[in-house]
């Protein structure tokens, strides 16, 4: 029994002047899901999120967010959505408490004082309540921004690159919080550049130049690209062979059967779609060298590097049209 759809939009388009920044976006996100939104800079992630919460009006398209029409009911959507902007957008010249209090008033939160006090406690900000938001470090700003999104107990969280510029410990804490929220039934749509974060999502969408190229779980996306990946490494821990790897990578890129070569520490990941041709090609190049090859399951990163290199020859699987 699938959970109800919280976001269900199709054919969303947005132009900025002559630039077509979001092209026919179709997206379905289920209740309680953590949905990852990935794609290079300028691929239309922020614009898509803003259209979902009513900050931008789509030029065309239709759909519902929390059961409300994204085109007509943006005001009612706003009151049930927690939107965390990419850039810290609370007031630098207000204290933590004043910021929370303001947001609580804006959302007409019931029992405002208690709600603010509780949020301060929960996020460990109580001791810093009187500190001006502008003087906080990146990690604390992020916690504050998240706290302000949660004050009105939204059903849907839209997080736009929430962990950009935040240290690993804070990122980890942040994701723990996201999973707690998701377990409590809150739907989370989060955009990110980090692969480890992508792997923490239930489902993912890959956006490139305004187009949804892939959508599904990590496995579905990897499978959909039909990649065969070989890991190439030195036979022994041979410094000479290891130093030869970058040159070798360039040589491999010349092979017609190779779609992608990426360095992973002391190894290379080489991927291609035709398993047989790739294998014979690699064996020919490797013959007589101090390098060895072994097949590995393609990682999400392999898949995304492949996606980033251009539109796939295969039709995207699972969604997108």
């Amino acid at each position: 029994m699938a959970a109800p759809l919280v976001i269900d939009v199709s054919g969303l388009n947005k132009h900025f002047g002559h630039r077509h920044v979001v092209k026919n976006l179709a997206l379905q996100v289920r209740e309680g899901e953590i949905f990852g939104f990935l794609g290079p800079n300028g691929s239309g992630k922020t614009t898509s999120i803003r259209m979902l919460c009513g900050l931008l009006t789509p030029d065309s398209g239709q759909g519902a967010c929390l059961g409300l029409d994204v085109l007509k009911d943006s005001a009612r959507i706003k009151s049930q959505v927690g939107y965390m902007t990419q850039r810290f957008s609370l007031w630098d010249d207000l204290s933590i408490e004043e910021n929370l209090d303001f947001i609580a008033r804006m959302f007409s939160v019931a029992h405002r004082r208690q709600a603010v006090a509780r949020t301060l406690e929960e996020l460990g900000l109580a001791a810093r309540r009187r500190q001006l938001a502008g003087t906080l470090s990146g990690g604390w700003k992020q916690r504050l921004a998240l706290a302000s999104c949660l004050l009105h107990r939204p059903k849907l969280l839209l997080l736009d690159e929430p962990t950009a510029g935040v240290d690993p410990q804070a990122r980890r804490d942040f994701w723990e919080e996201i999973h707690r929220l998701s377990a409590a039934g809150i739907t989370v749509l989060v955009s990110t550049h980090y692969m480890d974060e992508a792997e923490r999502c239930h489902r993912l969408a890959w956006l490139s130049a305004g187009q949804l190229l892939a959508c599904g779980t990590a496995e579905e996306i990897i499978d959909g690209l039909c990649l065969n990946t070989w890991e190439i490494s030195a036979r022994q821990d041979d410094g000479i062979a290891r130093h030869a790897l970058p040159d070798f990578a360039d040589k491999l890129r010349q092979l017609p059967s190779v779609d992608m070569v990426a360095s992973f520490g002391a190894t290379l990941h080489v991927s291609g779609r035709n398993a047989e041709v790739l294998k014979t090609g690699l064996e020919a190049v490797l013959a007589g060298s101090a390098l060895q090859m072994r097949p590995v399951p393609p990682s999400l990163e392999d898949a995304f590097i492949r996606l980033m290199q251009g539109s796939p020859l295969h039709a995207p699987q699972g969604g997108g049209d």
Binding site: K78, S79, V81, T85, L90, W91, M106, F107
Partner: peptide
């Protein structure tokens, strides 16, 4: 300019 308008707009004000 400070970007806080986005936050204000995201509220039902």
């Amino acid at each position: 300019e400070r970007g806080t308008f986005e936050c204000l707009l995201a509220t039902p004000a």
